[in-house]
Amino acid sequence: MPGSIGDRHVISSSAAAIVVPLRLTPPPRRRWRLAGHGPVRFVLPALVLAAWQLASSLGLINPRTLESPAAVLEALVELAASGVLLDSLAASFQRAAAGFLIGGGIGLGLGVVAGMSRIGEYTYDALLQMLRMVPFLAVIPLFVIWFGVDERPKILLIALACIFPVYLNTFSGVRHVDPKIVEAATVFGMSRLAIATRIVMPLALPSIMVGLRYGMGVALLSLVAAEQVNATSGIGYLALNPRASLRTDIIIGVVVLYSVLGLLVDLLIRQVQAWILPWHRTVLETAR
């Protein structure tokens, strides 16, 4: 009979089969493959830097237009020796992390609710889609008027930018969970909270991780605009500082810092994804 002890054991086993892989760690073979293929990602950037340096050394590039990589590195070393670079990185990291945690948390919660409930989708999905199309730079004056010129508008601008990628990917991941699994869990008495945390969230994690990767990248991009709001610190401030306005080596160095930070953040998220989703990576490798 439906709802018997045997049937409950089956659904419990199915739920456990979904949750248990989250506690697995990647096998040694996967770690070796990741470590072996990791340096390949840096081949093309290294070739671009070598070609850039060669063209600068041969005089093919005007230093007033584009400084050489050696000059950019020298400028970054100069900033690091003075302590300005480390202080700026710390300030920018705090703003980006705070904004991402706020915006990513809001986007995650709204995505889960809208994905599991038609009422949630009909309530605020249209509003979020409208806000998503508003140009990011257009709201900076409003945030200055509403929240002043201290740290609050900077963090809230980053948070606003992070909401939408996390929300969209979470919503998509939740909606693509097999409804038969959710229906079976409901029949056998699991609460909506248990279904959301033990069944829906694990199955939607691959899509959620894509949203988090995208959201962290957006946090770095919005950091540039946020640090234009009366900033006195941060790597964006280094490029906007009047003393650096005529030094292309510092401006290019800041651009390089942004790109390196973006690469490091993406690698970090990839490692976390490989750790909490070992079965997902295995499926991708098998398909190849």
Rank of each mutant, 00 (worst) to 15 (best):
S207F: 01
S56R: 02
A287L: 12
L284G: 10
S172F: 00
I276H: 00
K154Y: 02
R33G: 09
A15K: 10
V84W: 10
D178I: 13
G215V: 12
H280A: 08
A16T: 14
R213C: 13
L257C: 03
R281S: 15
L49G: 07
G99E: 00
P206D: 02
V256W: 10
P206C: 05
V177L: 15
I208K: 04
A231D: 09
S245E: 05
L205S: 10
L44P: 07
V72A: 06
L127W: 02
L157V: 08
A75Y: 01
N230G: 05
P63E: 03
A185P: 09
R30N: 07
L240C: 07
Q228L: 06
I195N: 03
P45W: 12
N241C: 08
Y122L: 13
A126F: 10
D178K: 15
L142N: 09
E227N: 06
A71L: 07
R23T: 09
G104W: 14
L203T: 09
T286M: 15
Y237I: 04
P206A: 06
R33P: 13
V187H: 02
I155W: 04
W275L: 04
T282Y: 03
R243S: 13
A231M: 06
P179T: 04
G59T: 11
D178W: 15
W32E: 10
A194Y: 05
S56W: 01
A71E: 08
A50F: 12
Q53W: 01
Y258M: 09
P141Q: 11
A15P: 11
A161M: 06
P27A: 14
P202D: 02
L257Q: 02
S172C: 08
L47Q: 10
A35Q: 14
F93T: 12
E183P: 09
I199V: 12
L267G: 12
A196E: 00
A70K: 04
G234H: 01
L86W: 15
Q94C: 00
D178Q: 14
A184G: 10
G173D: 14
L157N: 02
E183K: 04
A244M: 10
L261Q: 10
V84F: 12
P69R: 03
M133T: 07
M133W: 03
V187L: 01
G38F: 15
S56N: 03
R8P: 00
R33S: 15
A231Q: 06
V256C: 11
T248D: 09
L160Q: 09
G217Y: 13
M190C: 03
